[in-house]
């Protein structure tokens, strides 16, 4: 049902064709955590995102299982012990550029913005606020941001043996290259 609902929303977006909405299905979210023994790094290049430049609304969706790690064992632990991706396969962010007036979408250039919204990870939703930048380029819009979250806020349990070794904060990097939704 939920998927049809999403498809329905998506259809509405596509049918209300105008150049106000931009999307990508090849967005990037990476996370990074430094520990005393080694760095933990996961990459996801299959992030779907929609940006409405008339309202500043942004939506991101990602599958947890799409995060890729160099070490197979790390990927397994990430999915099974920490994110429980069989139970909670998706992560979603819904938010808004709060200072939309500072961006001139008609003029190529880079603009600093602040995005506020709800981030759902591991079935726990928290309000977040992140600084980022919007780059208006020929034929599209690039958005990027780097901010920190605390795994405990999302009820992600870190076992006692490694808790002291892992940095309390996890750094997220987001890079999206949007193109106008087909049809213009």
């Amino acid at each position: 049902m939920k998927r049809f609902f999403l498809l329905f929303i998506f259809l509405i977006i596509v049918l209300s064709v105008n150049a106000q909405k931009y999307m990508t299905k090849n967005g990037y979210i990476g996370f990074f955590s430094h520990t005393s023994t080694e760095d933990i790094k996961g990459d996801n290049n299959q992030v779907a995102g929609i940006l409405d430049i008339s309202t500043g609304e942004m939506v991101f969706q990602a599958l947890i299982k799409s995060f890729h790690f160099d070490r197979a064992l790390m990927e397994e632990h990430f999915n099974e012990n920490y994110m429980e991706s069989d139970k909670f396969p998706k992560s979603i962010f819904k938010g808004k550029i709060s200072d939309l007036s500072s961006v001139d979408f008609t003029k190529p250039g880079t603009y600093d913005v602040t995005v506020d919204g709800d981030l759902t990870i591991h079935d726990v939703t928290n309000k977040i606020s992140a600084k980022g930048s919007i780059e208006v380029v020929n034929g599209g819009i690039n958005a990027s941001s780097k901010f920190k979250i605390v795994p405990e806020d999302y009820k992600i349990a870190i076992p006692g043996v490694v808790r002291d070794k892992i940095d309390k904060n996890l750094e997220l990097t987001i890079t999206m290259k949007y193109t106008p939704i087909a049809g213009k």
Partner: peptide
């Protein structure tokens, strides 16, 4: 296969 978002996703 990683699953389905709006598309079927394959990794690696």
């Amino acid at each position: 296969c990683s699953g389905f978002l709006m598309d079927v996703l394959l990794n690696n």
